[in-house]
Design a binder for these strands. Sequence first.
DNA 1: TGCATGATACGACGATCATCGAACTTTGTG
DNA 2: CACAAAGTTCGATGATCGTCGTATCATGCA
Lengths: 104, 104
Amino acid sequence: MSFVHPDREQIDLSAVLHALSDPQRRLIVSELAQSDVPRPCGSFAPTISKSTRTHHFRVLREAGLVEQWKEGTSKMSRLRRDDIDARFPGLLDSVLGTVVAGAG
Amino acid sequence: MSFVHPDREQIDLSAVLHALSDPQRRLIVSELAQSDVPRPCGSFAPTISKSTRTHHFRVLREAGLVEQWKEGTSKMSRLRRDDIDARFPGLLDSVLGTVVAGAG
DNA sequence: TGCATGATACGACGATCATCGAACTTTGTG
DNA sequence: CACAAAGTTCGATGATCGTCGTATCATGCA
């Protein structure tokens, strides 16, 4: 993989908060958090277009929230929960705990 | 006061995260959290212009993070910590705990 | 080799954002 | 009244954002 993946210490709070401020991205993160099985990008947020989904995943990856790697023709994603929890303790839990409530 | 102040139940997670994604606004929130004494807007973020400061406070207020009221010629601000904590438990603590660390 | 699949790259569009200066309003004080 | 202090309002500017369609690339399969 040769994508942008910031180290744990490089993860920037502004970038993380901005990434999580979008409901679509928060939905993706929420789905990633609910199962430890990596899934291809295409299986998330089916209502938006492919290019928009690529964009959202790049924002999440460059913010350090998600790790991505290729498997065949698919690109798998994994939530970097350990890194985020270590860097900003409690942040992910509080955001994920209210993904639905906060959307309305 | 006749400003926009969302009720606790109306506070939107996207708006809160977006408001907190700006370093200047996070700095204001952090200073507000460090002392319970309400302070006038002008005593925050002295490096930015007055109009920009007005803008930032409006974003914070409309997101539900801050309550504002007039006192003489000044406009006082208070962090709505109780409301934010009730709506998104742990969020403010995790963000404020890393205001400085997250900026670098 | 050809084809299908999954994802990216490349503009493009309208919207929003952070920032500013200048003009204005509001309030208090002499 | 005049003046000062504290904020707001009003454009304006350059940047970024979310979204899209189309074209392109990479991989796997027959």
